[in-house]
Design a protein around this nucleic acid. Structure first.
Lengths: 169, 169
DNA sequence: ATTTGTGCAAACTTTTTGCACATCC
DNA sequence: GGATGTGCAAAAAGTTTGCACAAAT
């Protein structure tokens, strides 16, 4: 009862222009992950690499169970438990970001090499539209500061109706 | 879906600064809910009233299953299914707000007669600290506008360490 | 050789649902 | 009286976990 089209809006942040949504620099991300793993004396395994690669391959948001399904078959298959466990590691490593919308399940998105951004989530079509706003970030930092709160990360989600679903408006 | 009881003046206690733990004006909230229900040709029932009253009684955040437990026994008991169904109605009516943190379950908080606010969530103690920031709200409105997005609600959550857990900092 | 990770499948938790009966309009 | 809501219990859905085996250090 929830066929969500996880289409991405204009996506691509202010990087190189052109229609090339080139795969993120997998090697670099992997290097970061390896460093992270070594720092915690965790092992560098092929399953972990497989998960990371698959995550980077998905340019948009995805759910843990979608990834599980993705990796359930094939030569490089990875089991459910490992996918969940690895996803948690990737989040801890700062390579992946958790997004929680109104849905029951958690959504993830790779955030390696991407600028920080927030989301506009359409009530009607479920689409996620990304946006970045330096002033907004600044206000958030100020708010945390005002409460002597040491910010680690934050999330802004705006719900409503996107232009497309609002009859062009 | 046009009922937007967000700015119910209700003039009373709302203005008082400082910690205002007094029970929210139950009667007024109920009136809003009744109006909402009638507008959708839904029935006004005692179970729904019981849930609303219990929700208003909890000044803090709470989880759906906590409310279920709360209402599981007693003279005015309400069943699990009904609690979940009613909670959804209350959210739709704008009387209750959903909050999702890193936890698996959704948290709720009554927002009737309360000013809009956001949350600072401590990674260490799990505490929710509320704050309001007019500029932040403004930036959010601007961001939505820039994308011709019709905003209905929004949520800002900042994760990190609160002053108390950060050794007074 | 030892320690940590993985696959598997069962267990768990929270939320949703179908149905018969009760309640409201 | 007819439509809608409620209680109950069972089903779903998503995630976590224990354990035996495999892989990494």
């Amino acid at each position: 009862m929830t066929a969500r089209p996880h289409a991405h809006g204009e996506g691509r942040a202010a990087a190189a222009a052109g229609p090339a949504p080139p795969a993120a620099p997998t090697a670099a991300a992997w290097a970061v992950f390896v460093t992270f793993l070594k720092a915690r004396c965790a092992r560098v395994t092929t399953a972990r690499k497989t998960v990371l690669v698959r995550v980077l391959a998905r340019s948009d948001h995805f759910r843990a169970d979608e990834l599980v399904e993705d990796l359930a078959a094939g030569a490089r298959r990875v089991s459910r438990g490992t996918v969940y466990r690895t996803l948690a590691l990737l989040v801890a490593a700062g390579l992946v970001r958790e997004i929680r919308d109104r849905d029951v399940h958690v959504h993830y998105e790779s955030c390696f090499g991407r600028d920080h951004h927030e989301h506009l989530i359409c009530d009607v079509c479920g689409r996620f539209i990304e946006f970045a706003d330096a002033d907004l970030e600044r206000r958030i930092a100020v708010a945390a500061e005002a409460h002597r709160f040491q910010p680690r990360s934050h999330r802004v989600a705006i719900f409503g109706t996107c232009a497309r679903c609002d009859g062009g408006r």
